[in-house]
Write a protein that binds this DNA or RNA. Structure first.
Lengths: 189, 189
DNA sequence: TTATTTAACTAACAGCTGTTAGTTTGTTAA
DNA sequence: TTAACAAACTAACAGCTGTTAGTTAAATAA
């Protein structure tokens, strides 16, 4: 009875291993053996190790971009937009904790897609920054350096994947509410 | 005129490369060529690639442990202890931005020192958590899930090394003050 | 100067890397 | 039943990996 694998499973398993050891430290033989198969068999489904990294990272990055566009277009207060950003990150981190590790730590090993990824990331940060600055201007937020606000919130949200899996007792909604309290009510006048 | 290198320079250069590409993706030939030397020459000064990772990570981790012990022993208010923790992280991140990358992303490639590192990290987090919980009990801090407070602050502080180098216009004191405002006054009743 | 030491060098190793070619086996469609 | 296909397999590749041994050259101590 032979093992039967498919591309989606390969990508998922790759993400798990990439989180544990990092992209560069995972070999195609590691990945194959984790799936009960020989390394060469993977190439019936995928074209390269690079492709795995691309699939993992770009799909998440595009998810963030789409989520951010909806938030930007909505006419909500600044605080409400920030609340929605927290929800977006909590949702991505719980659905894709493994992929987030590659996005955070192995994006530099993207090759053809590196520039595209960097553009998505920069655009995301620009949108986020604009929300914060506008919140300061219309007096919703304290007058603190917006760059520091941006990166302190973003650092927390980007790290969710590390410790969310460890705290399974904490449900998604409860976590989201606590985070909003800490990250947003905190900078709210 | 031959290149003259020493152990300290090797470690510093290694940290720079490890930050850029990750421990596993950096070869001893990369490192040597960055220093204008052949790979074999490195072994006149160091015993292995592993040793470089150990030197980089453990020295930082021990620095955090020592800093935390001073803070714990001080009789200060909770808020003042948290302020001191922020200062500690800002200071380490500005003196050792490269090493922080290895500590955050490549600690799992420590071998003999892995358990020791994990103990230092756990103890640090336990001390930090105790400070937060005591602050909630004596009414200095809002009654929010302490685990979420711990990890949101810690995520920001652990990520400082990523963006501090990009914002050179922001001096260490100004950054430290903004962070305290955002991270601490925020959770302060 | 000469002897000693330091630290560079070249050459090589055994094992691992991602990937390809060619083959076999099991499953689906006719 | 048989033809066609999908997807596993084995074997092999060329290049790279960390590291060692042995050698040469420069700096220091006598």
């Amino acid at each position: 009875m032979k093992q039967k694998i498919n591309k989606e499973d390969i990508i998922k398993t790759a993400a798990v291993l990439f989180k544990k050891k990092g992209f560069s430290a995972v070999t195609m033989r590691d990945l194959a053996s984790e799936m009960g198969v020989k390394a060469a068999s993977l190439y019936n489904h995928i074209s390269s190790k690079q492709e795995l990294l691309k699939e993992i990272i770009i799909s998440i990055a595009e998810g963030f971009t789409e989520g951010m566009q909806v938030i930007v277009k909505s006419n909500s207060t600044t605080v409400d937009k920030l609340n929605k950003i927290v929800d977006l990150h909590v949702s991505v981190a719980s659905n894709n904790a493994y992929g987030m590790a590659s996005l955070n730590n192995d994006w530099m090993h993207l090759e053809e897609q590196l520039d595209y990824y960097l553009k998505l990331r920069t655009d995301y940060e620009d949108n986020f920054r604009a929300i914060i600055i506008s919140g300061i201007k219309n007096n919703e937020l304290k007058e603190v350096n917006p760059e520091v606000i941006l990166f302190s919130i973003l650092s927390t949200l980007r790290s969710l994947y590390i410790w969310m899996p460890k705290k399974e007792d904490l449900n998604q909604e409860e976590l989201s509410d606590s985070l909003k309290m800490i990250l947003i009510k905190g900078i709210n006048k």
